[in-house]
Design a protein around this nucleic acid. Structure first.
Lengths: 264, 264
DNA sequence: ACCGCTGGTTCAAATAATGAACCGAACAGG
DNA sequence: CCTGTTCGGTTCATTATTTGAACCAGCGGT
């Protein structure tokens, strides 16, 4: 593993519940030597990716990240574009919706919105990375993503999150096939024991899936009719997202005419 | 220079006008070997800090940055907190206002707002880092920041941006002294030939300046009366920012009773 | 006085980063 | 059709950087 990766991985230890991390805590988390960890921390800090609390001496994520987000958003306003669309989708279907982008072999959440219309809600932490094989977003992405990614995931370890997680590659391959044919994916209780979700791919300019939009509902509310309603709106939102981000759908994607819009 | 820094510095080449950078372009920009640059790019990409355009093969900032911003904002909602205050300040004084945070020996813009009330405007690019010695924000920060930083900047190179940039350390030291006594800084045509600006420090919980808020006006509109009006509102905004971010002013800061609020 | 816990530093030893030369593809011009 | 150039990317011996055991220093408690 390269030094750069070692340093950057440290940033992933931060989360909603862990906003400040001290030197010794980092040593425990990484399993690396204290001197090594310290030098990495210092170098990250010098570049603004971390900053040290002047009182507790613990480290937190630094201002460089904010600035870079600004630069990225100026070029490809993903967050800016995604926010209203996800919000509209979530409010429309009355359930939690989120968009995640591919990052390595995981999904990186970009924005989520829960209209909180019901007593039970789906738990969602924007700080946590999502697995590809156990989420509807992931399956949708694998179905229309780069071939290398598909092979890598199929031949890699498939962590079991619930009894319904597709942990053998044959079952996963089947799920991916189904998603490719349908243009979206449906997954029940595969990541969270009580959640059913549906995901649809978002494409880049090359017609490769780079992310996915998904609606998750508590399994108890997941009637076939409700899922069918969600499906239509989900696909419409996905198409809109692809378009707004300057992408075009894969030729393999069975893009139905967007609901309510007749094809010319 | 460490490998981590070499890699992270590459991210700084991205800007509003340069959102995609190819391998050879990076080689020119960094002056490093192609193989080295390429491995750095790959490692950054593997960690989601970059992503490669599937068509042009050029690199752009990746999704990891978005996620980390989300995590940081959940812990210390700087951007969220700063936005309305800066906006209110800018609209109140009718001129461009911005907040920047210290990053190494530079300032990293976090948010800016220009009410566009006049024909002439101050140019501001949120993607560009600002020098400490040539901006009012920087002087304010140096006056109340860590001593080590002050010494480092005073003994380092002081780039000349305009004929009025304080380029010798004595003049800079004097400007810092003035700012410390006044609690804010004023700088004319030191960074941009046609801009006057005033800056006030923002403190962390340890009473150390970690950033600054500033109002910049075209020099032609910078009458003494106008600057005086701005000064009061600027200091009020700075106090509010410090408080909202959980900081407390340095004992050395001559915090006047906030305008309109009598001290108990 | 001691201990256990922080964060931080040093220097020889070992590992990981480096770069000249290489490949294959795409494009332009003769 | 051949040639030269530029692009992204890869290889492997050489070299320089990262690494970690041992070391300080400060703090709170006993």
């Amino acid at each position: 593993m390269g030094t750069i990766t070692k340093a950057l991985e440290m940033l992933n230890f931060f989360s909603r519940s862990r906003s400040h991390i001290g030197l010794s805590e980092f040593v425990k988390l990484t399993g690396r030597d204290k001197a090594t960890v310290h030098r990495h921390l210092v170098e990250l800090e010098e570049n603004g990716f971390l900053e040290q609390d002047s009182v507790s001496r613990a480290y937190r994520l630094g201002p460089a990240i904010l600035r870079l987000t600004g630069v990225r958003e100026a070029a490809i306003p993903v967050r800016t574009v995604v926010r209203p669309i996800v919000r509209a989708l979530a409010e429309d279907v009355g359930e939690l919706a989120h968009v995640s982008l591919l990052q390595g072999r995981m999904l990186s959440p970009v924005f989520h919105f829960d209209p909180f219309e019901h007593g039970t809600q789906v738990h969602f932490d924007e700080a946590e990375m999502l697995p590809l094989h156990a989420t509807s977003s992931g399956i949708a992405l694998l179905a229309f993503g780069a071939e290398g990614l598909r092979n890598a995931v199929l031949s890699g370890a498939l962590t079991e999150f619930t009894p319904d997680t597709p942990t053998d590659s044959e079952r996963l391959k089947q799920a991916i096939e189904d998603a490719r044919r349908a243009g979206y994916s449906r997954l029940d209780r595969a990541f969270d024991r009580e959640v059913s979700s549906q995901g649809a791919p978002i494409f880049d300019a090359g017609g490769i899936a780079i992310g996915a939009v998904s609606v998750a509902v508590p399994a108890v509310r997941a009637t076939p009719e409700k899922l069918e309603t969600i499906k239509g709106k989900l696909l419409a939102a996905a198409a809109k997202l692809t378009e707004s981000l300057g992408g075009r759908p894969s030729p393999a994607h069975p893009s139905e005419p967007t609901t309510g819009t007749a094809s010319a």
